[in-house]
């Protein structure tokens, strides 16, 4: 493949192998029934690798066609990633209807805010617009994921170990992509010779690490039945919450008085 260093080609091959391992485990353990969108995401990533392989062979690494098709395929996998993430978050939070309603709003608001910021930033630098938009997207995903995971922790919503690992992997990878893009841009602008090899390695290595961790986690079984906690009547929330709040507020007021603030 013209334009790709040997080391990058090896890393790429390794990526395909670990992805195949993850996909194999998903089917072997029957996880695809519970996680159809996540399965589709992994399958789509493999398809993307094959697709890019063909494109690079035919059009080379630096051609405009490659650029266009590679980023189009990336946009599709990004969309699949969002769907897979939403599926997982839904599995964790949906049994708690009230918290889920809160969670998806948090997800929406944080994503929109970060995407707006990313859009504005991408618009400022047209040469790097796609890379910056990609970074913004990853950042939005990471922020949204962390926000919802914090929400789950705050409300002590139990998160199964496998789900936790997958969600953590998504977030970690998005964070590393954001950092990689930032550093790459700086290296590129300063005409650093190894810029391209570094960018490839910094993108592929965390991805491989995440896939390995996922493969290890996916060896375990998923919960057989979705936890369905018995929910309280809405009246209890409406009754208890204002009373507790009033008490908490009074406590705060007294503490302020104690300090004469």
């Amino acid at each position: 493949m013209t334009g790709l260093a040997r080391s990058v080609q090896w890393l790429w091959a390794l990526t395909v192998i670990v992805q195949m391992a993850v996909l194999g485990l998903i089917f072997l353990k029957g996880h695809f029934r519970r996680l159809p969108l996540f399965t589709a995401y992994i399958a789509l990533n493999l398809c993307q690798a094959g697709f890019l392989f063909v494109i690079y062979l035919r059009s080379g690494f630096h051609s405009y066609t490659t650029f266009l098709l590679a980023w189009t395929s990336e946009a599709i996998t990004l969309l699949a990633r969002v769907l897979a993430t939403t599926e997982l978050l839904g599995l964790v939070l949906r049994p708690y209807r009230g918290i889920w309603a809160l969670g998806w709003r948090v997800l929406a608001v944080t994503s929109i805010v970060v995407l707006m910021f990313a859009g504005a930033e991408a618009g400022r630098d047209m040469k790097w617009a796609i890379m910056l938009a990609d970074r913004g997207f990853h950042l939005a995903l990471a922020v949204a994921l962390v926000s919802v995971l914090l929400l789950a922790r705050y409300y002590s919503v139990p998160v199964h170990r496998v789900y936790k690992t997958i969600l953590g992997g998504f977030c970690f990878y998005s964070c590393t992509v954001s950092l990689t893009t930032t550093f790459s841009r700086t290296f590129f602008l300063h005409k650093f010779a190894l810029y391209e090899a570094l960018w490839n390695a910094a993108t592929l290595l965390p991805y491989i690490a995440v896939q390995v961790v996922w493969a290890l986690a996916l060896r375990s079984s998923l919960p057989v039945t979705e936890e369905r906690p018995a929910l309280l009547p809405t009246s209890v929330y409406n009754e208890v919450t204002p009373l507790v709040h009033a008490r908490l507020r009074l406590l705060n007021d007294r503490l302020v008085e104690m300090l004469h603030i």
Binding site: L102, T234, V236, Y237, T241
Partner: peptide, 14 residues
């Protein structure tokens, strides 16, 4: 107490 109630409520106030 408030967290438990919120967690187990079908609807919570933002």
């Amino acid at each position: 107490l408030a967290v438990i109630v919120a967690r187990l409520s079908p609807k919570v106030e933002r």
